[in-house]
Amino acid sequence: MSNNFILPDNKLIDKFFDENNFNLYYSKPALKHIKEFILAGISKGFSSKTTDIAEYSENHRTTIGHFLSKGNWNEEFIKEIIKNQSLEFSFDYAKNNDEPIFILHDDTVSEKTKPSSQAKSPIEKTDFCYSHLTGRTVLGHQLLTTMIQSGEHNLVYDLQRYDRERQSKIDTVCDIAESMPTPPTNAYALFDSWYNCPKIINAYAKKGYHCIGALKRNRIIYPKGIRIGISDYAKYIQKSDVHLVTVNGSEYWVHRYEGNLNNIENAVVILSWPVDAFKNSKALRAFLCTNVSLDEKTILEYYSKRWSIEVYFRQSKRILGLDKYQVRSIKAIDRIWVLQNLVYLFCTIGLDKPMKFGRGVLEARKHSKREYIEWIYECAQTGIPLNTTLELLNVA
């Protein structure tokens, strides 16, 4: 890139930085790099490669790579900003609108190509992990993600790389549960069967949260004191033992069990089948809820909100390049994920008003284009020749 490259001001990003005190924690060069990452992140075709960021910078991609891998700046401050802003917004919205709060947990895999045995600098800290998306074991990084949802607003709270040598997934989620403040309204942690265990449930219960999660069909329940697995119990359920509920436009036959499970004193277990697949063992789904006052329809509707985290994974991979990075040092990779989530925060609650991420990206792009056009117009009004303007924008 030319050293004469000029980056027009972006007032929304500057306001976002001011509101979160970025100027107190980062030098002007670091702020410039972070701003360039946000501008690149909201552009079409972004894939988290240093060449993409270089399109919005006067620096060469090697300089950007150095900023990510060895730059003297603390990404932990941005992590805290993301957590605090997401918590504050979600809790205030829930309290003001009498809405429940949902904490969503899940993980995804950033798959990478297996390096050659002769590779001198392979991507660091990759591991073999199971991908639910492909149904096979792949090489890559596994990302544990936590989101907060209230109403229609879905915000990222935490994203971290899973390191099996450091801590288990269960212990990581328990740590996150312990970090949560007491909720101002009813609050629920939502997760699939991989995280549905007494340790996590108890960790959330201590902070005032109920849990709703999918159950594996071999989980043990105790109807009338009889020890039996869910799939075996389902064989004895008759049409008179179920009723229809409609959830998000689809009908399901449901059966309710309330009682104890192993290491869980009392909870609701919902067995459900699609309306046209009653007694089909492959169609059976089971869910646990620790709030026994909820009816079956509400439990299933609440659990369906967990889909928001799958939408986040898809959008982050497609729009923010969550799995497209090509830097090799693990420090640079961890920092890219932090900056990607900063872009996500900016596009959801950092603009003029809160909005869903997809809409926020479009609005941020429009604002950025508008400021470029205004800057070019000002150049023309002040008599700067067109060729000079094109050179300043590095498009001559």
Rank of each mutant, 00 (worst) to 15 (best):
S69T: 08
D127A: 15
I103W: 09
S57W: 03
I212N: 07
L215T: 02
L87C: 02
N202A: 15
K70V: 03
G350C: 07
S193C: 09
I176E: 02
R136H: 12
T389N: 00
T185S: 12
C289A: 14
T246E: 14
S281N: 13
H367E: 15
L320P: 05
D192Q: 00
W273H: 08
N3W: 09
S43A: 11
P8Y: 07
Y204N: 11
Y188R: 08
N59R: 05
E19Y: 04
Y56I: 02
E363T: 06
G45M: 06
K317Q: 06
G350S: 03
R314G: 00
V327S: 01
I349G: 04
S250I: 02
K366G: 10
W307T: 00
Y204A: 13
G229W: 08
S69V: 06
E258D: 02
G41Y: 01
R359T: 14
I336Q: 12
L104H: 05
I53T: 04
R256M: 10
N96S: 15
L104G: 00
D127P: 11
A40D: 04
H33N: 14
K112P: 02
F17A: 01
K95L: 09
T389A: 11
N387Q: 11
E88Y: 03
D106M: 05
Y325E: 03
F16Q: 05
Q142C: 14
D276C: 07
T146R: 06
K70W: 10
Q149G: 09
N260R: 15
S27G: 09
E152S: 11
F16N: 03
V275Y: 12
Y157L: 14
G360L: 06
L393M: 14
R318V: 08
K356P: 07
R256F: 08
D52F: 00
D334C: 06
R370Q: 14
L12G: 13
W273S: 07
I176V: 14
R318Y: 12
F313R: 01
I82W: 04
F128Y: 14
T145Y: 04
L345H: 07
T246P: 00
P181R: 03
H243E: 09
Y25K: 11
E363G: 00
D323S: 14
